[in-house]
Each structure stands twice: as structure tokens, then as C-alpha cells.
Design a protein around this nucleic acid. Structure first.
Length: 569
RNA sequence: GGGUUCGUAGCUCAGCCAGGUAGAGCGUCUGGCUCUUAACCAGAUCGAAAGAGGUUAAAAUGUCGUGGGUCCGAAUCCCACCGAACCCGCCA
């Protein structure tokens, strides 16, 4: 393979490569390339995590690449809200136990009355993430889809050939279940639950399934059935296909040409591909397999475990662009991902932007191309025309700054102004930059970050989090000295109010004066200045070291500092 | 049992998925400076002094897990092996 410009497909990323493969495949299959549909399945049984978001975002990327190559394309976001609740996710109310196995679209919203159902609430969370990231999609609800009869024909075909399918499933995955039962889960009309009723016969003429609610093992638990036997018409929507066959039905019904999947459902995809080709006679969509996102400890991020990293969490501390960068950068390779990756990705996005606009040179052609491509996808292939308005301040600096002032009980608007003033002092920004929304937003994100995490390096360092009212341990002499310093600072502050104090040089003098107060008090009591400085850092920022105290205390406002000292000694 | 990914500097990792100069941060070593706070030191520090501490600039650091293959050219593609992690195993 050569990477010479004439051989570059689209924007030169993995996304383009898949899109190109997809188009070539469709042509070969002799199918129409008018409006190529790509799909992403949205789990609705638990709180959507970064991985669910990745599935949808990457599918959307393919869709963008197709558009870029000149084909109309749309992303179908399909919510599995007819799935039954198999387990109550950690952190959710206990009463949900009573709704185990019921379709999530029939379970009340555990977060209050904000949505019609459990399933709708969960789907909305993910869609909200997609909206914030600017991803466009066409939403489909599983429940609606089944009720409106869209899948009836496919269901009929599948159930008519259930013997063949059962054998195939047994052969390729070893799963024996469908040798005995149909790959269809009725909602028991007596107990309103899925999975507990096994379907026995398919009555082709009536398009109905007979079932008996005899119970089943879900996960590792045996769930009792209610004993009811009944019949359900497949177009009623009171039942659904098993996962092993459902994707295929959906793909054909919605004319899906591409769907990515995580390696955890590889078996299901394989068997669905076969059903799609052989039973439904619809060439299965092209796939891209991606690795699961793992948390830093190496465990799969899943909806039921307690380690969920949600799009909402990410967007509290990072821009949508930083999240899209994570998801678009590459598709293969296990990703250990955590909140603490945000600062690096925030800065990397700025770097990409600088390269895109030529402010930073990237001599390697193919690398530059790829970076530009990823940048364009992050911007939905409509990148800004010029970047004269953007200011790149390393996110870490914003975090540092925010961290310095976070204990002052100020409102976040005030904190924002303080940080902005300091950035001005360092000449990183100019006065008029206060109007730049991107910059202000970034500062706000940094403020959120330090509100929840103390340190840059330690996402897990909760031990350092300051509890504002906690006393700092010290000897009585130390205590004495610190309180003397407090008094002198109070005097200094009140003297100050009588004078006008607007000039900058005065601020500098003041800082010197503060520094002298601290130093003298230490000396006069035969204490190492070092000791007292350490104590003050401990009190103010819960650290052994910090910025030059005189300036810092002036920046914080002397009276604010006195308050903190009083509270913590 | 089936499958996938990862292995790169002392440490943490990027680069690999479209082959073309081996990279970053931290640490280490060396020199300059000790300077208006981008979380440096304690400022008028300790020491008689060399120096210490700090900062900054540059440098050093590599069998790219091992072995083979393709290629003009391989960290990157292919195969085998070793090590680690993850997913699936009759749930969806």
C-alpha cells in the first residue's frame, strides 16, 4: 500500500477506509447506494456508558465518511427498549426487583417522572450525549418497531425455519436451547414478563406462538415462571425475537448496510449474519469489531458494575470534541479509559487544531493527513473556516489555576473571573477574550474538575480532597504563630480599606508585606520559616508546597485567607 | 474450550489499523541560572568553603516480547512461539 496523495480515500482515516470498503461491497452485491443506512444499537437496560456512545459515534463517523464520498447516508439509533430487565444495576432502587424480566419500556422511570419508562430514561441519556456531541441520528424504539409490525414478516420467516436455525445455533455456538424452543420470547400475558415463558410451537397460519411460562435461568439465577400457558400473535408486539436472530430481522427490515459491534457479542453477530444471508436472503451488513472500553483496573465497563464512565460524566469535565477525539482516533486496541484521560485529550485536540490550521507543522505527510482527517470528523466534516478566535491554553494550567482558588467558598462565576485575571497576568489571554465562549467554557470545565478531583496526576487520589472544615494538625506553638499571622493579616487588610489600592505596584508591595509578616512571625518564635510555610500550604491548599505565598494570598484576598485560617486551626 | 487485544527508554505510555529518520512526560546525568508564582525554593536558607536545594537548557538512555516471512525498506503487514489482560462459554 502506498500513501501517496492520489491513493488516499476520503480523509485518510480508518473511518474512510471502512466507508470505502462498504461502498465497494454494496456495488459488488448490486445493491442501490442511495441512502446507505448504518445502525447502532442502544442498550436501554442500564445507564449508558462511554462504550455505548462509542458504538453510535463511530457508526455516525462512517455515515459522515459516506456522505463525504458522495453518498446519502443516515444513522439509525435503535433502542433495545423491549428487552427485559435482567438485573437491577447497582445504585438503582431496590423496588426494581419487582420488575425483573419485564420489558424496560413498561417499567416506571426510577429517576422520577421525567420519562415515560425506565427504558426511555436510559435511551434518552445516551441520545443526550449524542446531541451534545452533535451526532445526527434517526431514533427507533424497539417497542414501537415490534408493535407497528415492521418486523412481522421477518419474524414469520425466522419462526417458520426455526428448526434449521436451532440446529445452526447449536452447531456454531454450542447453545442447545433453540433446539427445544423457538428463538422468540413472548411477554407472558399473565405475569407480563419476558424470558420466563418458553415458546413451543409456531402456528404459521395464525402467525402466533404458543408458550408456557415455566421459568428460566437468567444469568446464574433461576427465575420462576407463573405457569401460565398461552398464545401470542407475532404482530402484536407482545414478544420479541431472541438476540441470536433479532439483529438479522432488524437489518433486513431497516435495510442496514453497516453495524459495528463490541467483541462481547461476536457470536451473536456471526449467527445473525448467517440468518440474514441464508434465511432472510438479505446480504448481511458490513461490520467493524471494536474492543471494549476497560476501566483503569482492566475491567470491562458495564452497565451493571459500579464502574460506569458515562458520556455525561465525561462532558462535565471535557469538551464534546475531546470525547469525539477519543472515539475517532482509532477503533482497534483495548482502551483503558478513565476520567483522568480528559486533560490529555483536551490538549491533544488543541494540537490537532493547530496542525489543521498549519500553526504547527507536521512534516510526515500521512500523519498530517490522518490528523487533519480526524479533526474534520470531530467537526462533523464541516471544520471551522478559520481559527482566529480560538485560544489554546493547556487544560492542565486551567486545572492548576482552578485548584489554587477552589477553597475560597466563592461562587463559580467569581472563581472564573479570578482565573481569567491570572491568565491575563500571564499574558495568555487578553481582556476581550472574556467574550470567547470556548475559553470560558473550558475554564468552567476545569473548575468542575477540581471540584471533584484534587490533583492532576491522581484521578484516584480522593485522600487528598480537602474537607473545608477539617482542622490541620499542629503544635500549640505553631498554632500560636499561625493565629498571630492571621491577626496581622487582618490588620493589614483593614488598613488597606482606608487606602485606595488599584495600582499594580501596590499589589506587589502588599505581597512582599504579607511574605514579611509570615517570615518574621516564624523567626520571632524560633521556628523555621519552612515549617510555617508548609503549615500555611496545608491550610490553604492541603499540600506541602505551593506558589509563592505573598502573591498568592493577595490574589486570594487577604480577608478570605484569614477566614480559611480561622476555620482550619 | 472458543475468540480478541496488548508487549516500545529506568517508570507511565504515544506511534501500528493506509510501511519510509525511534517519540513524549516523569526519572537520570551534565552545564547555565537562582530569575515579576504556569503549585520551584523559602525570601535576609544551611555552610568558612566546595557544595546543598531549586529552576532552566541540552544530553544520555532502546535486541520496538522472541523467531521467521513479505518488501528496496517493517515498531507498523503476514505466520509461529512466549508473556500479560480482556471477552464469550448454552443470559440477552
Amino acid at each position: 500500500m502506498s500513501s501517496s496523495p492520489e491513493n488516499i480515500i476520503g480523509k485518510g482515516t480508518w473511518i474512510d477506509k471502512i466507508a470505502y470498503t462498504l461502498v465497494e461491497r454494496e456495488k459488488k452485491l448490486g445493491r442501490s447506494t442511495y441512502n446507505i443506512k448504518v445502525e447502532s444499537g442502544l442498550g436501554a437496560s442500564g445507564i449508558p456508558h462511554i462504550g455505548s456512545m462509542g458504538d453510535a459515534v463511530r457508526a455516525y463517523g462512517i455515515s459522515l465518511a459516506l456522505q463525504n464520498l458522495g453518498y446519502a447516508s443516515e444513522l439509525i439509533a435503535f433502542s433495545d427498549d423491549l428487552d427485559g430487565l435482567r438485573k437491577v444495576p447497582t445504585g438503582l432502587p431496590k423496588w426494581l426487583e419487582n420488575h425483573i424480566c419485564k420489558p424496560v419500556s413498561t417499567i416506571p422511570d426510577p429517576f422520577g417522572d421525567c420519562h415515560d419508562s425506565y427504558g426511555q430514561h436510559m435511551s434518552r441519556l445516551l441520545l443526550e450525549g449524542l446531541d451534545l456531541a452533535g451526532v445526527k441520528y434517526t431514533f427507533k424504539s424497539g417497542t414501537q418497531t415490534y408493535r407497528s409490525g415492521i418486523l412481522t414478516e421477518q419474524t414469520h420467516t425466522i419462526l417458520s425455519k426455526s428448526k434449521l436455525i436451532g440446529d445452526k445455533i447449536a452447531e456454531s455456538t454450542g447453545q442447545q436451547k433453540y433446539l427445544k424452543f423457538l428463538p422468540y420470547f413472548p411477554i407472558c400475558e399473565n405475569c407480563n414478563r419476558l424470558y420466563v415463558a418458553n415458546s413451543i410451537d409456531y402456528l404459521e397460519n395464525e402467525k402466533a406462538v404458543t408458550y408456557s411460562c415455566t421459568g428460566n435461568t437468567i444469568g446464574k439465577k433461576l427465575i420462576q415462571g407463573c405457569g401460565h400457558t398461552g398464545q401470542v400473535k407475532i404482530q402484536s408486539g407482545n414478544g420479541k425475537l431472541a438476540w441470536k436472530v433479532e439483529f438479522a430481522a432488524r437489518w433486513q427490515a431497516f435495510d442496514i448496510k453497516f453495524e459495528a459491534f463490541g467483541k462481547d457479542i461476536m457470536d451473536s453477530v456471526k449467527i445473525n449474519d448467517w440468518i440474514c444471508d441464508e434465511i432472510l436472503k438479505f446480504s448481511h451488513p458490513l461490520h467493524a469489531k471494536y474492543e471494549m472500553f476497560l476501566d483503569k483496573g482492566g475491567k470491562k465497563i458495564s452497565k451493571s458494575a459500579g464502574n460506569v464512565l458515562t458520556p455525561q460524566m465525561w462532558l462535565k469535565y471535557g469538551t464534546p470534541e475531546s470525547l469525539l477525539l477519543l472515539l475517532y482516533k482509532r477503533i482497534s486496541g483495548t482502551r483503558h479509559v478513565g476520567i483522568d484521560d480528559i486533560p490529555a485529550l483536551m490538549d491533544e485536540y488543541d494540537l490537532f487544531e493547530d496542525i489543521f490550521f498549519g500553526r504547527i507543522k507536521e512534516p510526515n505527510d500521512s500523519k498530517r493527513l490522518k490528523i487533519n482527517g480526524v479533526y474534520e470528523y470531530i467537526n462533523h466534516i464541516r471544520p471551522p473556516v478559520d481559527d482566529s478566535s480560538s485560544i489554546h491554553i493547556p487544560y492542565r494550567i486551567l486545572i492548576q489555576q482552578a485548584n489554587l482558588f477552589k477553597n475560597q467558598n466563592q461562587g463559580s462565576d467569581q472563581l472564573l473571573n479570578i482565573i481569567f485575571d491570572r491568565l491575563k497576568k500571564y499574558r495568555l489571554v487578553k481582556e476581550e477574550d472574556i467574550k470567547k465562549k470556548d475559553l470560558i467554557n473550558k475554564i468552567k470545565l476545569a473548575i468542575n474538575w477540581v471540584g471533584d478531583f484534587n490533583d492532576l496526576n491522581e484521578g484516584e487520589g480522593e485522600g487528598n480532597v480537602i474537607r473545608a472544615n477539617e482542622k490541620v494538625e499542629m503544635t500549640s506553638i505553631q498554632k500560636d504563630v499561625v493565629s498571630k499571622i492571621g491577626n496581622e493579616l487582618t490588620n493589614l487588610a483593614s488598613n488597606l480599606e482606608n487606602k485606595s489600592k488599584d495600582s499594580k505596584t501596590q499589589d506587589d508591595d502588599l505581597a512582599q508585606e504579607v511574605q514579611t509578616i509570615i517570615f518574621n512571625n516564624a523567626k520571632n518564635n524560633n521556628l523555621q520559616p519552612k515549617e510555617i510555610f508548609k503549615l500555611l500550604y496545608k491550610i490553604l491548599i492541603n499540600s506541602e508546597k505551593g506558589p509563592r505565598l505573598g502573591n498568592y494570598i493577595v490574589d486570594l484576598g487577604i480577608s478570605n485567607v484569614v477566614k480559611v485560617i480561622e476555620k482550619r486551626t
